[in-house]
């Protein structure tokens, strides 16, 4: 059964069709709310809300885009709405430089777990912009409109977030440190 049929059946209240749709897209929905929320419990609540809302509003889905795209947007918008309600101010932190504190790792393999852990440790304002831009692929203009900030603020937050991510991605190994020391002589 293709996705269009599943959606049609779900519209009639077919729970099995709903469950199939859920199973196909649950990880992506959870990913976007988890990364934006930065909090496991909040993400669980938001994810449930997204699915409940989506299935209750399925009559609004016209099929112009895929169901996955549709629910992804709902997830993103609901997470952003929640974040806006919290009315946080942009995080203001000092800039990082390659020469500051411990140097970032050399060309260590950046695996997914490292990234997810680093994302969790980012200040919320940094994380939102980084996730929206580098993970979700939104433009600064879209981010600025979504978060109700200036485009320049979005850019600034992104660069600060990346800098912080570089710091959070671990301490270099001894070999890496040696390589780093060699590299320092070239600056």
């Amino acid at each position: 059964m293709d996705q269009g049929e599943l959606v049609e059946r779900a519209r009639t209240g077919d729970r099995r069709a709903m469950q199939r749709l859920y199973q196909e897209h649950a990880s992506h929905v959870f990913a976007v709310v988890r990364r934006l929320a930065g909090d496991e419990q909040l993400a669980e609540d938001l994810s449930q809300d997204v699915w409940i809302r989506a299935f209750n509003k399925l009559d609004q889905f016209r099929g112009d885009s895929g169901f996955g795209t549709w629910i992804h947007r709902i997830a993103r918008n609901m997470a952003l709405s929640h974040l806006r309600r919290r009315k946080r101010r942009p995080d203001v932190e000092g800039e990082a430089s390659p020469g500051d504190s411990s140097p970032p790792p050399e060309d260590a393999v950046i695996n997914r777990q490292m990234l997810e852990e680093a994302l969790e440790q980012l200040p919320p304002g940094y994380r939102e912009v980084l996730v929206l831009h580098d993970v979700e692929g939104m433009t600064h203009k879209e981010i600025a409109e979504s978060l109700d900030v200036a485009v320049g603020t979005s850019k600034s937050q992104l660069h600060k977030a990346r800098a912080r991510m570089r710091e959070l991605l671990g301490t270099p190994s001894r070999e890496q440190q040696q390589e780093e020391t060699k590299g320092n002589g070239a600056g």
Binding site: A26, H28, F30, A31, R35, R112, E116, D134, V135, G137
Partner: peptide
């Protein structure tokens, strides 16, 4: 950009 889903 290559991060995928997260298991709920």
């Amino acid at each position: 950009s290559a991060l995928g889903g997260v298991t709920p």
